[in-house]
Design a binder for these strands. Sequence first.
DNA 1: AAAATCGCCAACCGCCCTACA
DNA 2: GTGTAGGGCGGTTGGCGATTT
Length: 329
Amino acid sequence: MGRPPCCDKTGVKKGPWTPEEDILLVSYIQEHGPGNWKTVPTHTGLLRCSKSCRLRWTNYLRPGIKRGDFTEQEENMIIHLQALLGNRWAAIATYLPQRTDNDIKNYWNTHLKKKLGKLQPAAHVSSANSSMSRDRWERRLQEDIQTARQALSDALSSEKSILLSEPKPDVGPRKKHAQAPAYASNTENIARLLKEWNKKSPKPAGRTSKDGSSSESSISVGSLSSTTDAPNCYKSEIEGMGDLEPLLGLEPSMELSISSEVSQPRASGGTSPSPCFFQNETKPDPSVLDQMNVTLSSFEKWLFNDVADSLCGRSEFHLSEQLLEFFSS
DNA sequence: AAAATCGCCAACCGCCCTACA
DNA sequence: GTGTAGGGCGGTTGGCGATTT
């Protein structure tokens, strides 16, 4: 007997969210706060299932979300964290508080995977020989993760100070919509922006926007991250929402949970993620690291030295060179 | 100019974990 | 101890725009 669906399928709307739906949801959450998603559809009148509401909020409407335009720093962080944590997108997202796990996952799948795929010498991933047992590999990982945890924490601390002290103009967004990022600081702003937008663009609902350029955009508030999309009267307000300190706080408990997760994959036995920056991000062959004749200590050294370097401003990060150097060590 | 293909990403699906009765 | 519901998470898909043929 399978688990029943989270909501009655009949009469439940699916597909892209409209601005009107966004407003309803944001208004409700503004009033009641997020949570108790089960009741959200009934209270808001939204013909969406609770899960869809939660997803919409956490991925797009939630304050403090930065959309698109991954910086090189973020890119490097994702690469390193993915190498360390595997496909634990939620865990990775905790280190990039402005990004959602979905966003990071998409970015990985569409950009970084290809990037690394090109750089990755095929010989290194062939798992022809498997000398190290999984147990042994995990034990070693568990030991090294302690050191790694500390190093990562240090590296992130330096990033925090950098980000809070000065924006780095030279490490800006690299994609086409290279505007200064702005953040909706609270649901009130979101609601106001949505309303203002709606006034200006009373078009029927269409596909949710990707970059906010479409007038039938759902705004998705995520696109509020582009100040050019926001009504002029709110631009300065948005740009002033730079209070990221609480968002960048790194909690020790978080680190602990992440590190323990690494050594204790989900019990499903299915796609238990694990450290891997190889093409199949599922469980790596434990022999891979061994095969490369690399201890995790040097592995983590590579990881965190680079994180620290790039975060401290010495961001001459040549991924290919470092990978090659690493692989050939 | 039209058709075919590719790339991107928002949203969905299904599984798992946890809290609670 | 067991069943159920809510929520979290990762994998996958569908649809649209962009690019290529």
